[in-house]
Amino acid sequence: MTANITDLSAVRRPVAEAQGLPNAHYIDPGVFNEEKHAVLFSSWAGLGVTADVTEPGDAKPMTFLGMPLLMVRDKGGAVRVFQNICRHRGMILVEEARKIEGAIRCPYHSWCYGTDGRLVSTPHVGGPGQNTHESIDRNLLGLIEVRSHIWRDVVWINVDGNALPFEEENADLIARWAEFDKPLYHGGADSAFQLEVKCNWKLAVENYCESYHLPWVHPGLNSYSRLEDHYHIEKPDAFSGQGTLVYRQLKGTQGEVFEDFEGLSEKWNEAAEYITVYPNVLLGVHRDHAFAIILVPESEARTVEHIHLYYATPQTDDAMRAANTKQWKLVFEEDIFVVEGMQKGRHAPHFDGGRFSAVMDSPTHCFHAWVAGKIETHRSTAQAAQ
């Protein structure tokens, strides 16, 4: 599929002069395919959370931009990501989430793999009753592993394998949130939900980065955490978002609250921050809970948001936890009409990508500039290889 070679020269200008990404970056399948390689496969992208595979042997099949993947917690307790295919004939290995009791067995010819990816059995490969053959070197035919890293319970993957180490790539954000480098406890089944939105994945990022829309889209939230209580967070080529100086804790019927993360400075008594880790993970931190939203692009015009809520302690009040999930679900649902409306708007042929408020939109422009930079680097590399 050939990409429409878009002109990105105006996107990386200073925010007061810049234009947004052209329409094709939201509606053109060819450009979507270009971004898959230039932006998503070349970066540390979010795939899932370790809470999806809590026990050794747990395996969950996933699809990321058409790629069949298998997230496994191996018998040693480590979470790993493999391509979900047999090395023999490319058959899908695991169709539904389940526990691997023995080995991962291919349903086609029964080749078997350990949860660490090793090829351990090749029945009849050399003929009836002959389970080995000199042409089949098991040491070279283990499952294809995808480079992965765990941070804040998110399973991050670098598909092309060329990104800097995760800790180096995201050193500034890790340092910024060092106070939250503590155990996170997933709230369980009632603390995870999905939202399917009819928009390009980037629009969900753009909307999350800024607080400009709060008075009109989130009037309930804005009633106490006002527009003027927010500040920008920007690290070019890495992350951007917003923070608030007014965070109101959820209270139970008797005035009880969730326990705080230990050792936080006074800054977090009323502050909270909401940051997009480029390309597709939206993170939020508060004194008493956190969340992760993983945006999984399904096409140029469809995205699934996977939302997970976390707490400072393994045990939390059921009613409060459910109320917190309901509260956040409402906030995130309020954004759907906006991102879907912008998606529809990208079909207007004379829209030039729009403008940015130099005062209110700089975190969003920061993201646009990063995407444009990744694409330009990808194009230059491809051209040099010709």
Rank of each mutant, 00 (worst) to 15 (best):
N4T: 15
T6R: 10
R13S: 04
A18N: 10
H25M: 15
P29V: 09
F32I: 03
A45K: 01
M62D: 00
L69W: 01
K75C: 02
K75D: 08
R80L: 09
Q83H: 15
R87K: 15
I92F: 01
V94C: 04
G102H: 10
D116E: 13
P128G: 01
D137K: 13
G142P: 05
L143F: 02
V159H: 09
V159L: 14
E167H: 12
E169I: 00
A175Q: 13
K182A: 14
H186F: 13
H186Q: 03
V197G: 04
K202C: 06
E206S: 06
Y208D: 11
P219Q: 11
Y231H: 14
E234V: 15
Q249T: 08
T253I: 10
E273G: 07
N280T: 00
H286I: 00
A290H: 11
A290F: 10
T303E: 05
E305W: 10
E305K: 12
H306W: 08
I307Q: 12
T316R: 09
D318V: 11
A323K: 13
G341C: 05
K344D: 13
R346G: 03
P349C: 01
C366D: 04
C366M: 06
G373V: 03
T377H: 09
T377E: 14
H378M: 11
Q386T: 13
